[in-house]
Nucleic acid binder design. Structure first.
Length: 738
DNA sequence: AGCACGCCGACT
DNA sequence: GTCGGCGTGCTC
């Protein structure tokens, strides 16, 4: 039987590069002359409401679509996404409940200008010459409503621009006669340095090496012995050094990943560079590419160094992050063409197309929250872990996740296999000090440890609460925290009473503990400044240091240093004191127990000899598991709890932050959100958003027993809210703070 | 009738 | 995102 001829000509689904939740991909006719050039991943120019827009073809419809009316106007040459990258981006958008545009942009070359016109003709009083490039905003300013006519007449043509490759200035020795430089020592030094470099070298490097100035070089050039020229800057590739073999257990782990699949390796943080290097070496030996994803730029140095040591000299490695400017787009080209072997990058590299099939992925320090862009800012608001899980499945390469204490979202994920963790050899002694019945901020044990440090040259780090951490009210008698009767979360302390961080329920401040009746109810949480004053007084010395955010005082010399967790625990100390573990163990946000475990574990990793933990909950299972380096038993208990509550990774949770006047927000929620929800999706809020989101921000929570249903609801709600005026919308799947 | 405003859907 | 249509409520 012959198939019926289709009633429609072929069409393409086009995702416009317009950053809004409101526009789904739209169908456009493919004119016959473009049929061979329009494929999934093509960058095309189309018309929307009479204006031209740039879009990416995300699918072909050979049988057409009766909604398609407009034709694709042009195909942009030199730029095309692989179809696997396009389907990966579509999956990422589904999971992140994000608009397509920012996700596709993350896969396109950095610096791609999508809002500029090329001038194709001229009109009377026209300020531009033919051939010139004009930004869309300048054209709009100059022409107003006339812009659309100019577009329709083809006088202005939407023209995406790739960043111009950077140039470098080279100095080259010419064949001119040897000049007499006996009275010009600087010029002589320059010429000698240039000869040592083989007669051709970058001007900036040459001047630095000869410690000469540009005027000396100019003088030398005037004599004709040297000339300078500008050439396109090559991408900043580094070669392998081949000075070491990959570490043996890491190489064993890498071999498994080479076979494909999703792998978790609970190696300690200090072993991550060696693990990433072994994976890179395995990829290169198999002729494949490796993408190493690092949460923070500062961590890239040691990882790249380690990788270079184990790579052969013929292999290339490069770093990739947002601060690199033009060099980044040259690297994009090299990676996409398959010329680069190993890319070490931040989250901005997670969707970057790689030219060779089945690349290996490695996510370093997997649970780190810097692996995700904050929603509402540039970038993809989905954790690199999730992107990598999708990417490995789409491309068929393997993925390796590194963390001694991985996220429960990964550990509890079906299909992720664990490589047996190496034994932890370096672990301190731990003293857990029961603070029940004590009102003092520091125990005798902690003070003695500090006092001992004064004379011996050993160093103690005292870790206060993170700045801006929500505090709770805790009973100094029995240890109970004041909790919301509905949600059973610890109540946050505000200026005018207590408030549940989830449902927004307000409670008056209290004098007495509702559990034991004691009057010794006080705010939990020690600020670093208060701790330091307390310590200086008790020790009778001013020689204490401070290391908190931007405030650094004697942090490298003082025998006792007080500070906030992040800077404190990225250093090593002979002794670490955690004066208040309870604010971690009791903190209200969902996911806080996971963060508490990780912070306690990091404190142990940062300690050489003795870790002192003050708590009113000495038997807390999270605390016990952390100081015993027993992640599996923590995960077992916590995953059981999350499963019972239907929280991620077992259910879906989507936070929607709305900014706008309260009345407008409430009305929009009533009229647009409630009606959009399907059964099985719960809606909480709106409650005032955490203060970090700024004034007049409100937060909605969508919850479902099914991950996919929650993300779907998030997309639907975002789409309906996107067109409400005077409201800005931000969607976050699996939010960190709830 | 004439206009500002906000809501709402279309745009392929 | 951007636009235009339309109902509402106000003023002349």
């Amino acid at each position: 039987m012959r198939p019926e001829p289709s009633p429609h000509p072929p069409a393409a689904r086009v995702a416009l590069l317009v950053n809004t939740h409101a526009l789904p991909p739209l169908s456009y006719l493919v004119p016959p002359e473009l049929r061979r050039r329009v494929t999934t991943g093509s960058l095309v120019v189309v018309r929307l409401s009479g204006r031209s827009e740039l879009g990416v073809v995300v699918g072909l419809l050979p049988d057409g679509d009766d909604r398609a009316r407009e034709e694709i106007l042009r195909v942009v040459e030199r730029l095309r996404l692989p179809s696997t990258t396009v389907s990966l981006c579509l999956r990422v958008c589904e999971e992140a409940a994000a608009p397509l545009a920012p996700v596709l942009r993350a896969a396109l070359p950095p610096g791609l200008g999508i809002a500029g016109y090329r001038v194709r003709g001229s009109l009377p009083g026209w300020p531009w010459r033919p051939g010139e490039l004009v930004s869309r905003s300048a054209a709009r300013r100059a022409l107003g409503a006339g812009l659309r006519e100019a577009e329709a007449a083809g006088i202005l043509e939407l023209a995406p621009s790739l960043p111009e490759p950077g140039t470098v200035e080279l100095a080259v020795i010419t064949s001119a006669r040897e000049p007499d430089l006996s009275r010009a020592p600087r010029q002589r030094a320059l010429l000698e340095a240039l000869r040592r470099r083989g007669g051709r070298c970058r001007v900036d490097e040459l001047l630095r090496e000869a410690s000469a100035s540009r005027s000396s070089l100019r003088a030398l050039a005037a004599r004709g012995k040297v000339r300078t020229l500008r050439v396109a800057e090559p991408p900043p590739l580094l070669e392998g050094l081949q000075s070491e073999l990959p570490e043996r257990t890491a190489a064993d782990a890498a071999r498994r990943v080479l076979e494909g699949g999703l792998w978790l390796w609970r190696a300690p943080t200090r072993a991550h560079p060696a693990a990433a290097a072994a994976l890179a070496a395995a990829a290169v030996s198999a002729g494949r590419q490796a993408l190493i994803l690092i949460p923070e730029v500062e961590m890239m140095g040691p990882v790249v160094e380690q990788i270079r040591r184990v790579l052969p000299k013929s292999a290339s490695v490069a770093t990739y992050h947002a601060g690199m400017g033009r060099a980044r787009s040259a690297l994009y080209g090299a990676a996409a063409a398959g010329r680069l072997d190993v890319l070490v990058g931040t989250r901005s590299a997670a969707l970057l197309p790689l030219g060779r099939p089945r690349p290996l992925l490695c996510v370093v320090d997997e649970p780190n929250e810097a692996h995700r862009a904050e929603p509402g800012y540039e970038g993809v608001p989905l954790h690199v872990r999730e992107i990598s899980l999708l990417r490995a499945a789409a491309e068929g390469g393997g993925a390796l996740f590194l963390s001694r204490c991985p996220s429960l979202a990964l550990y509890g994920r079906p299909g992720v296999c664990e490589i047996p963790p190496p034994p932890e050899r370096r672990w301190p002694a731990v003293r857990i000090v029961d603070m029940r019945g004590s009102g003092a901020p520091l125990s005798r044990t902690a003070l003695e440890a500090c006092r001992r440090a004064l004379g011996t040259g050993r160093r103690v780090g005292v870790v206060g609460n993170r700045l801006g951490y929500a505090t709770s009210m805790v009973c100094n008698g029995c240890g109970a925290a004041l909790r919301c009767p509905r949600c059973h979360l610890a109540l946050a302390v505000l200026a005018d009473g207590l408030s549940c961080p989830r449902c927004g329920r307000r409670e008056p401040a209290r004098e007495r503990c509702p559990d034991c009746g004691s009057g010794r109810l006080g705010p939990a949480g020690l600020a670093v400044e208060r701790l330091r004053r307390e310590l200086s007084r008790s020790l009778g010395t001013d020689n204490t240091g401070l290391l908190a955010g931007g405030r650094i005082l004697r942090a490298d010399e003082a025998p006792v240093v007080v500070g906030t967790p992040h800077p404190m625990l990225s250093r090593r100390w002979d002794c670490v004191v955690l004066p208040d573990a309870d604010h971690l163990l009791l903190a209200s946000p969902a996911g806080a127990r996971e963060r508490a475990f990780r912070l306690l574990h990091r404190a142990a990793e940062a300690t050489e000899r003795l870790l002192i933990i003050q708590t009113r909950h000495p038997e807390d299972p999270v605390l016990r598991a952390a100081v015993d380096d027993d992640y599996p038993s923590f995960a077992r208990v916590e995953l059981g709890r999350l499963r019972a509550l239907g929280y991620p990774p077992f259910g879906g949770l989507v936070a929607i932050t709305l900014r706008g006047p309260e009345e407008v927000v409430r009305r929009a929620v009533e009229s647009r959100v409630r009606s959009a929800l399907q059964s099985g999706v719960e809606l909480w809020g709106p409650v005032p958003a955490p203060s970090a989101d700024g004034p007049s921000a409100w937060r909605l929570l969508l919850r479902s027993r099914e991950r996919a249903a929650a993300a779907r609801a998030g997309r639907l709600v975002a789409r309906r809210l996107a067109r409400a005026e005077r409201i800005s919308v931000r969607v976050e799947v699996d939010p960190e703070e709830v």
